[in-house]
Structures are given as structure tokens and as C-alpha cells.
């Protein structure tokens, strides 16, 4: 099943995110679309664009990533979740987008279970470091292969 990844945000966060993803995934396919309010003006216009895309591809899966939970873009697009094969995720970050792109490539089914796994991994990647962690790492040693 083909998956469309839609990034929707305030400002140009979505467009910027695509440039970052491209640095890591060089041959990024065209199934990723960035819709930021700088270019698209209103959440309603973003929604209209997504709806048009959904009409054009009624059998495909859509994963919509929004920048912030409770934001006007997420709120507006949330109503699209009522349709089948639509997932909406808030709090997009680079790790999340990369994992979802890789997880839905080549027709792979990136269903709710896989998305939940990815979000767990991504959450584990949100970390805070300072000098005290370097001292701790010293005690941890150099790791084992098994």
C-alpha cells in the first residue's frame, strides 16, 4: 500500500523539516509533502490541499504529521482522521519523520502498531545532557556486543 507523508506546520517548519530529511535520506521519494502556514496561509487551505490529495488517491494511506498538539493546524486536520487509512501525529521531529519515511517505503504497511513502536523509539531519543553525564559514562565502560 502506498503511503503519503504530509508535514503540516506553523511558519515553514514543515518545509524546513523536508530539507533536513533530505540530508539523511538522499533519494527521498515524492510521497512527502510539506505544508507550512508561511506558504499556505490558513489551516483551512492546508486542509483543502490534503483533502484534494486524498480524493486523488482514495486507496492510499496518509500519515499527517503536525508540529504541535492543540495548534490550529493540528486541530483543523484532526477531523480528517475520521476517514480510513489516515493517521495524524503531533509533535513532529526529525527522528520521527525519518523513521516513518523508512517504515513506509516501498509499499510497506506502516499501521498503528508500527507507528506506536516508532513513537516510542522517538520519545526515547528526546534526551538532555550536561557535564554530569560525561562523568557517568566513564563508569559505564565501553559496552559489549552481546
Amino acid at each position: 500500500m502506498k503511503t503519503h507523508i504530509i508535514l503540516a506546520s506553523h511558519g515553514s517548519l514543515a518545509e524546513g523539516m523536508v530539507t533536513a530529511v533530505r540530508m539523511v535520506i538522499r533519494d527521498l521519494s515524492d510521497n512527502i509533502l510539506a505544508l507550512g502556514l508561511d506558504q499556505w496561509e490558513t489551516p483551512q487551505l492546508i486542509r483543502a490541499k490534503v483533502e484534494t490529495l486524498m480524493k486523488e488517491h482514495p486507496q492510499d494511506q496518509f500519515i499527517i504529521l503536525c508540529d504541535i498538539k492543540g495548534g490550529s493546524v493540528a486541530n483543523e486536520l484532526m477531523t480528517l482522521c475520521i476517514r480510513s487509512r489516515v493517521t495524524l501525529i503531533t509533535g513532529m521531529n526529525l527522528a520521527m519523520v525519518i523513521s516513518l519515511v523508512l517504515g513506509s517505503q516501498n509499499g510497506a504497511d506502516c499501521g498503528k502498531e508500527r507507528v506506536a513502536e516508532i513513537l516510542e523509539e522517538v520519545a526515547a531519543g528526546i534526551c538532555c545532557y550536561d557535564a554530569s553525564d560525561f562523568r557517568q559514562s566513564d563508569q559505564e565502560g565501553d559496552g559489549e556486543l552481546w
Binding site: E121, A124, C127, Y129, S137, E140, D142, G143, E144, L145, W146
Partner: peptide
Amino acid sequence: KMVKPNGINLAIR
């Protein structure tokens, strides 16, 4: 160690 992907063991030698 920060870059190590989850679920994979890492050894530095």
C-alpha cells in the same frame, strides 16, 4: 554512545 540506535549493542575497543 549517543548515536547508538535502540536495541543494538555497542562496543568500543
